[in-house]
Design a protein around this nucleic acid. Structure first.
Lengths: 344, 344
DNA sequence: TTGTAAGCGTTATCAT
DNA sequence: ATGATAACGCTTACAA
């Protein structure tokens, strides 16, 4: 006896079955087109047609319940306002959607990571991609029995995908050194976001290898935002002597730094060289265009997603070991040779 | 007889019930804390404790199945790279998360709106927030029986939330006219995104009211991106006579336009005034800072979400009629008085 | 090859 | 006040 309830217009596999004159599981069988189960061509035909006529759409929620999978991924990033993370997310969404996965976006700036993780769990996401800051600021238990991939951090604790942060710092340092700079400042991150920290370290280490160092008053720590960059640069401009170059661990900082220079009448790069990191779109928009290190944000996201999906699918971890993704020096207009004369 | 299967560590309401020595539905009752159902204080206590001890988290998928709600919203925007839409999305997420709703983000630039809608449907989202372009480019059926709110477009077909686009155009025009400009160009949108179009129209109409008009060769249509703005401005700079001001229907266009001027040695605003619209963060970062129209993107998103949630909850549409949200003129450094002498 | 039955983890409607 | 019992829409044995 069919309960024949037309209360809602939602058409279910049952409706399709009724119309095709088959049982409901048969509908499921043909629509999922599993090769290991054979169904008569005529039945298949009727089912397909009935489904089409009724405009049947399988209910992923129901399927998720029985399969114990939600076919959804969570991504939590520290700040979507940072174009870098936006690009990471895009990379994730690209590969996720190719596999029929949805992604639940979480911005830790809006809501705390704990709450996000809690939400993601109750929604039964099949896995999460996490920035290291959010990963660290969440209690152990919040990640228990969850498929996790962290981004922008090498880790033994979790699978990871990251760009070569230390290499980025090194490239920046080499570029500045080659331009003749000896008194170089750094605008580093205020919070211990691993990737930023490694950029800073790679930079300083390379300086050290060249028997150079960063004066302690020239190592400014600030939030990795435009505003942070402004504050850092204001402090730097007050220094005597003034450093001849500054490496900002991300482009947002560099943008802020540049802004302050222009406002203060400090010529970039004639009087001061500014170097960013990430190569966000805005780096090419400001004047002078920002010299920076191109970081494959999308690719980091894409790989993280692939790795996560593999784990979710119960596949073996991976055949090749994960390596930091290479970064690339992009020389534009905000860096130049060290000024020959000293100015006040 | 309890199937006592410890195969998965996932804790269900059944486990809690067993531990608390009550029936499973009772667990549901106390945990949902519905005020209309009374349960003995002692039972409640035991259940709560058992739940806490076991670390029980309700399975939203299962709940969704029986409630026929997914507690998820879809948001589809034309381009997340546009900070304006990012802000809209943030507004949406803010109010959605306050109500325990998740949001599925869809970027039409990455994947076509049809596919997005399809995905959202199979995921049983309770409603979608749509930009008008995506809304228009999707077959009628894709939106059937779906709670929809469109943003940045007034509409009789769907509920909507929008900023006062025509007003934005008007404010921009008034500002430029007041500065003495008479030969004004417009960088409009290449695709018929309603909000952009209305900005353009509001602008031109106000000019007309002042007995001014835009020369046809000074009405450039381009994608509402930085690159589009660059192309538009290149074309404009080739004009003779050159217009003394240009209104860009969004800040991205204005950023691109500004960039080309600086590259070409055209002084802004001394030789050419540039006016944007949206007031994205970058408007304050470039030099000269962009004069623009502040548009409450977040608020648009937030209101759209509230309106959608109301509809989803079966509440009456709204007590007060929806009105376009007011915009505000922000005068910064990219606009100035019309140059007194004509230059080549 | 296909139908029947069981169950995924909830909520809702009854009895009790 | 609480326990059975029946959905929700689907997948997966297993029987026919």
């Amino acid at each position: 006896m069919v309960p024949r309830r037309s209360r809602s217009a939602r058409v279910t596999a049952n409706d399709v079955a009724a119309r095709a004159g088959v049982s409901q599981p048969t509908v499921s069988l043909v629509l999922n087109g599993r090769s290991d189960v054979r169904v008569a061509a005529s039945t298949r035909e009727r089912v397909m047609q009935a489904a089409a006529e009724l405009g049947y759409r399988p209910n992923l929620v129901a399927r998720g319940l029985v399969l114990r999978r939600s076919f959804a991924l969570g991504v939590v990033v520290p700040d979507l306002g940072n174009p870098f993370f936006l690009d990471v997310v895009r990379g994730v969404e690209r590969v996720a959607s190719e596999s029929g996965y949805a992604v639940l976006l979480c911005d830790s700036k809006e809501v705390s990571p704990e709450i996000h993780l809690e939400t993601l769990r109750t929604r039964q996401v099949d896995g999460v991609i996490l920035d290291p800051l959010s990963a660290a600021s969440v209690p152990e238990a919040a990640l228990a029995e969850l498929n996790v991939v962290v981004i922008e951090q090498t880790s033994e604790r979790w699978p990871w995908q990251a760009s070569d942060a230390a290499g980025a710092g090194r490239l920046a340092a080499e570029h500045l050194i080659e331009l003749g700079h000896r008194d170089i400042a750094v605008a580093g991150p205020a919070n211990p976001l691993h990737g930023f920290l490694m950029r800073e370290r790679g930079f300083i280490r390379t300086l050290r290898d060249a028997v150079l160092s960063v004066r302690s008053e020239c190592l400014r720590r600030a939030p990795a935002t435009v505003e942070g960059g402004q504050n850092a640069m204001r402090a730097l401009l007050a220094q005597t002597p003034r450093p001849t170059a500054v490496f900002c661990v991300n482009d947002l900082l560099a943008l802020g730094a540049l802004k302050v220079c222009l406002q203060s009448g400090v010529q970039v790069p004639e009087q001061l060289s500014i170097m960013g990191c990430d190569d966000i779109e805005m780096a090419r928009i400001v004047t002078p265009e920002l010299s920076t290190i191109a970081v494959p944000a999308r690719e980091v996201g894409a790989r993280a997603a692939r790795q996560l999906l593999r784990a979710v699918g119960g596949k073996p971890p991976s055949r090749t070991p994960v390596r930091p993704l290479p970064v690339r020096l992009v020389i534009r207009r905000s860096t130049g040779p060290v000024p020959s004369t000293t100015e006040s």
